[in-house]
Design a protein around this nucleic acid. Structure first.
Lengths: 206, 206
DNA sequence: TGATCGAATGACCGCTCGTTCAGTAGCCTG
DNA sequence: CAGGCTACTGAACGAGCGGTCATTCGATCA
């Protein structure tokens, strides 16, 4: 049973993390200040330091929290499908749906791909956030490798292929989030999946 | 005929821009300080302000300068090839070669894709740097459109396709620049081109 | 009801950064 | 060679940041 204090604690942490996500989404990683996050959350600056050691930890926990939600969705997508093309469809659909529902997270996600700041900042970022990204790339590379082993797709460097596909699809998602109005999710999922499978070359009949 | 003053002026501007590019490459956009750029260029902090109005202008001009070099290379690649697959090969080769030779620029290039900072900063960035990026995407989208019209490739949304391919290939280049040692340029160009043309699906014989 | 407590606050501190400008060094000119 | 002119310098400044902590004040309890 959770004590009253624990409930309040969790509520505060969540409120601050949500605020952090919105501010980072607006201003970007580097320009999001503690003051603005505090204002957004409706608390004083000092309060944030009751729940997070420093700015670094706040960003990290915020990222971690949203990231594990996304990974969960993707794991589901992978688990519930057998064939490669189904898996790809499901993963792309999960990503688009997730980022549409959590637009704020997207900016944070993008900011953390390439480390910035002082040498020390960069080291910390590489240690904490980049592994999650690498992990995700590797996960996708593994799926590609399996499909190659099963003969479902042709053999190429799975890691490079994973990078290409993930970043390519991220670009489409970014475009969707910036467009005033987007086509329905299904048609973009179709577009991405068919491009991945067959490329752009025209061919007789399938 | 250029006067002596003009030559000196241009030399200083170039020296400072080169230094800016190296520092941004090391530290990232947000953490690159005027002091460090000045040190790198071997001039005093104040000198920079004789040639650039403010930090913003320095970054902008630096970006502009390197970007037009890249666009030139790509224009050449497009002009000297007729068929779609040749164009794609040539463009990808040009990009990889350029970024390998100008690794410094790559970080700057990546930093400016998504606007950061205050609302005002974001507006300025959108006005100056993003158009160049959009321009490039549009240029590639036009090539795709032409290829579709000529029946060389199948019909899909050219803008989305352009985004996917550009970001996907950017990811490969980023990987190349981070790897301790990369495969030769040709094999990555082959990889990218063949993926774009035919996707990953296994098929009988071409 | 008054005493106690600790969560929340925001003025404050030290620091870094972009920007300025009074001063300097070196070169051209008469 | 004197005198001025200009390109350059770097100490100084002020804005704005992350982080601290003495103070406040509403909830809780005897």
């Amino acid at each position: 049973m959770k004590s009253k204090e624990e409930v309040v604690q969790e509520f505060r942490v969540q409120t601050i993390q949500d605020a952090a996500m919105r501010v980072i989404a607006r201003k970007g990683m580097a320009a999001a200040t503690i003051q603005e996050i505090a204002d957004e959350a409706g608390v004083a600056k000092g309060t944030i330091y009751l729940y997070f050691r420093d700015r670094e930890e706040l960003v990290e926990k915020t990222f971690e929290c949203a990231m594990s939600q996304l990974l969960e969705k993707i794991d589901e997508a992978i688990a519930s499908n057998e064939k490669f093309d189904q898996k790809v469809r499901a993963i792309m659909a999960a990503k688009i749906t997730f980022f549409t529902a959590n637009r704020e997270f997207f900016r944070l996600y993008i900011s953390l791909r390439v480390p910035e700041g002082s040498a020390q900042d960069q080291r910390r970022q590489r240690q904490h956030c980049q592994p999650r990204y690498r992990e995700r790339t590797q996960q996708f590379a593994d799926i590609l490798q399996q499909a190659m082993d099963r003969g479902e797709i042709r053999r190429v460097d799975p890691h490079r292929l994973a990078l290409f596909i993930m970043e390519g699809s991220t670009a489409i998602i970014l475009e969707r989030l910036n467009e005033p109005s987007s086509p329905d999710e299904g048609s973009d999922v179709d577009f991405i999946t068919s491009f991945i499978l067959d490329g752009v070359r025209k061919r007789s009949r399938s």
